[in-house]
């Protein structure tokens, strides 16, 4: 009998842990690095105070599950429903009122064409004319200059539209959002029908979504052959960098700092370069960008004397950040660097 009970308890321990996830622990592990301890906000939006007072539970749940494609917030597809529920419970424990915010799932019928015109006049200054937000990056990071105290959300986003019901959007326009600059309907001078028209317009963004598929030719590393010897290739690259307005840093051999100088391979040189104007813009979009910066081209002389250039495929690396704004700039950077390689290896 005792043995059976013991065995039963052994079974129960992990089951109990699985059955009752700890919201605080889960929040600390998955969310606090961006949303800060106690939801004060950082790279991610603030989750405490007035801002989430009227957030419906379902909206927060779906936001965690689906994320915001192209807007830093990742989709937490591997968390169980119970784990997400526990996180939502923990976040909602910061609410000042125990009032439960619930909104109808009914569709709102409005005139999306009229809504588009109103959106351009009343909403686009903050949410962007295409609904993708006018604020660079997300959240409330105050460490750098910000146009908005809290970056206005991108409404034209599959994650947002799948999480927000029509009536939740309607309520937000009607009542504004306390703790942010989002004004209520009265201040926007909108009629009830006009609010519905705007909701219909926002909902119509869904029609333009296409599933992103990786291009077959995408390679994580770009490799180029140089027709020149090692020193000439390095010299050519520096000349091209200057010509394209990049600033390059002092030469560094790849193994430098990891072993005594006499042991390091001096035929593997990393040319690090930067355009500070662009760097500033990029880290305002996502401050974590340092994990792939500065731009680098590594020049390597092979044992047979042939010289190859290696660099990160910026277009592909940018996608790791789940940030459309970043991806667009990375594509421009990619083109500049291709031009640079062409010039240097011509």
């Amino acid at each position: 009998m005792t043995r059976s009970l013991l065995a039963f308890c052994i079974w129960l321990v992990p089951l109990a842990i699985l059955a009752a996830p700890n919201g605080k622990q889960l929040y600390t592990r998955h969310c606090s690095v961006c949303h800060n301890d106690n939801g004060m906000g950082g790279i991610g939006l603030p989750l405490n105070g007035e801002k989430i007072e009227h957030f419906p539970r379902d909206y927060v749940f779906k936001t965690i599950r689906l994320g915001r494609e192209g807007r830093v917030m990742p989709a937490f597809g591997k968390l169980s429903d119970a784990q997400i529920d526990a996180i939502v419970d923990y976040v909602f424990s910061w609410k000042k009122t125990s009032e439960r915010a619930e909104y109808s799932d009914q569709k709102i019928t409005g005139n999306p064409k009229a809504g588009a015109e109103l959106f351009a006049r009343k909403c686009a200054a903050c949410h962007g004319k295409d609904g993708k937000s006018n604020g660079l990056g997300t959240g409330v990071t105050t460490s750098r200059e910000r146009k908005f105290k809290v970056v206005p959300p991108a409404l034209n986003n599959p994650g947002f539209l799948a999480s927000a019901s029509d009536y939740w959007i309607y309520d937000t326009i009607q009542n504004g959002r306390r703790g942010t600059i989002m004004p209520p309907q009265k201040k926007l001078k909108l009629t009830d029908q006009q609010v519905k028209d705007i909701v219909s317009h926002i909902r119509s963004f869904e029609q333009s979504y296409q599933k992103h598929e990786a291009l077959e030719e995408d390679q994580p590393t770009l490799v180029f052959d140089s027709p020149y010897d090692f020193d000439t290739t390095v010299h050519n690259l520096k000349q091209s960098l200057k010509g394209l307005n990049f600033r390059y840093f002092p030469d560094r051999y790849m193994e430098m700092g990891l072993a005594p100088d006499k042991e390091i391979n001096k035929k593997q040189l990393s040319l690090r370069f930067c355009n500070f104007n662009q760097l500033y813009k990029l880290i305002n979009i996502d401050p974590r960008l340092g994990i792939v910066l500065p731009c680098r081209i590594t020049v390597v002389e092979q044992p047979d004397g042939a010289v190859k250039l290696y660099l990160i495929n910026m277009k592909m690396a940018a996608r790791l950040f789940n940030n459309t704004q970043l991806t667009e700039i990375a594509e421009q950077m990619h083109d500049s660097v291709m031009e640079l390689i062409d010039e240097a290896t011509l």
């Binding site: 800060n36 974590r288 340092g290 994990i291 680098r296």
Partner: peptide, 28 residues
């Protein structure tokens, strides 16, 4: 770098260390 030169642009490994208000964020 000898056996898998395609890893060259990703080496050495890197950690970004940034101040955010009263705390420090590390990202890799």
């Amino acid at each position: 770098t000898g056996t898998h030169p395609e890893l060259i642009p990703y080496l050495p490994l890197k950690i970004a260390v940034m101040k955010e208000n009263d705390s420090i964020l590390l990202a890799a």
